[in-house]
Computed example of a mutant assay.
Amino acid sequence: MPSPTSARAHIIPVFLPMAGCSYRCIYCDQHTITTTQQPLLPAALAEHVAAYTATRKSAPDEPLPLVAFYGGSFAQLPLCVIEQWIHAVAALEYSGKIGGFVCSARPDGWRAEIFELLRRATCQRVELGIQSTNQDILQRAGRPPITNSEIRTLLNTLREHGISPGVQLMFGLPGENRHTWQATMQDTLAWQPDTLRLYPALVLAGTLLEAMWRQGNYQPPTLTEAVNACADAFVQCTEYGITVLRAGLQDSTTLRQQIVAGPWHPAFGELIRSECYRRQLLALPPTVTAIAVHPHEISALIGHGKSNSDLLTGLRVERDQTVVRGKILWRQELSRTTL
């Protein structure tokens, strides 16, 4: 069974750009996104893990790190390649270096034997790149059709094999609007995945999406639109107990050089969390004089660039470990600690 702490374990990424992908989506350039031109081989995994762990000091109560296979579709790799990676992971797990692995994969093209293989290999989590549940959007993005029922079955099958199911969504693909995004979110909430990653659609050089944009056939969302849409998703996930692992792509010089259009910001996730707190602050009754948040959420509460400072005037804040992260607790009798 996957560890309940796997969502907070340190991740050691192993990028396999486009590996296992039988087609290329119009927005995708994994070599740029992962800044990886030459993928790692299974024989080099131990050295890769050692290099990562040597530069990082773990907290006493922190779970063992997890190897994460990203950038491709792990479940669609040739069976012999999957087994090579699993053997490399097993050796590190046996020696106490890692606690297992997670991976990302497409929702289509799953073979029945893969589920049992991942279960026996102590795979902690599989994140499915769904992007959208709107069939027109998927078709425009160059992805094969897949029904909500098929996705639900896949997620449930992962659970039955003791693997935590995660979902990855992308806002702003061609054909996207408020209604299609909300429909995708409602579908996602109904599936009840354990985790979610949110990405805005970015126009990268050399992709088919760039060609559409230059021809005037695609207009990416603005940064404000993307932040608001992803904040909507973040709020809903918080209410449903779904952990948002990340919002936005990891910043890198290579990525910045390849972005030609779209709602890019190096602190995209922080903008979303700031917006979520701003909405809660605006909804406070006027008589409230004290609020409580989790101690690790103070920065997000204040907001990126202190964007929420105007709404905190006159309020006092209590740091409370018991408050759910992402939420504000308020009651007039709260003890008051000045920020």
Rank of each mutant, 00 (worst) to 15 (best):
M1L: 15
P4M: 09
S6W: 13
R8F: 04
A9L: 10
H10F: 11
P13R: 04
V14N: 08
M18D: 15
A19V: 02
C21H: 09
S22G: 05
Y23K: 05
R24F: 03
I26G: 01
Y27G: 06
Q30F: 02
H31A: 13
Q38F: 08
L40W: 03
A44C: 02
L45N: 06
L45I: 04
E47C: 02
A50T: 09
A51F: 02
A51N: 10
Y52F: 13
Y52P: 03
T55I: 14
T55R: 15
A59C: 02
D61R: 15
E62F: 02
L64F: 01
L66T: 05
L66R: 10
V67Q: 13
A68N: 00
A68M: 11
Y70H: 12
G71W: 00
F74K: 01
A75F: 09
P78V: 04
P78Q: 05
L79R: 14
C80P: 11
V81E: 15
I86P: 01
Y94T: 10
F101D: 04
V102P: 12
A105Q: 03
P107K: 11
W110C: 10
W110I: 08
L117V: 02
R120P: 01
E127Y: 14
L128A: 07
I130V: 15
I130W: 06
L138H: 01
Q139L: 04
P145I: 09
I146Y: 13
N148A: 13
S149A: 12
L158H: 07
L158Y: 09
R159L: 11
E160N: 11
H161I: 06
G162C: 02
G166C: 09
Q168E: 06
Q168I: 13
L173Y: 06
P174H: 06
N177E: 09
W181Q: 05
T184C: 12
T184K: 11
M185Y: 11
T188F: 10
P193Y: 14
L196F: 10
L196R: 13
L198T: 11
A201V: 12
L209S: 10
G216A: 04
P220G: 00
P221H: 00
T222H: 00
T224G: 01
T224L: 04
E225C: 02
V227G: 00
A231L: 03
V235N: 01
C237Q: 06
C237M: 07
G241M: 07
T243C: 14
L249E: 04
L255C: 13
Q257D: 04
I259S: 06
A261D: 07
G262D: 01
G262N: 04
G262V: 03
A267M: 14
I272P: 14
Y277T: 10
R278H: 12
Q280V: 08
L281C: 08
P286H: 11
P286Y: 01
T289G: 05
I291S: 06
P295M: 08
S299Y: 06
A300N: 14
I302Y: 06
I302N: 03
G305D: 04
S307P: 00
L311V: 05
L312K: 09
T313D: 05
G314L: 00
L315Q: 10
V317L: 12
V317D: 03
R319H: 12
R325Q: 15
G326E: 07
Q332V: 02
E333G: 10
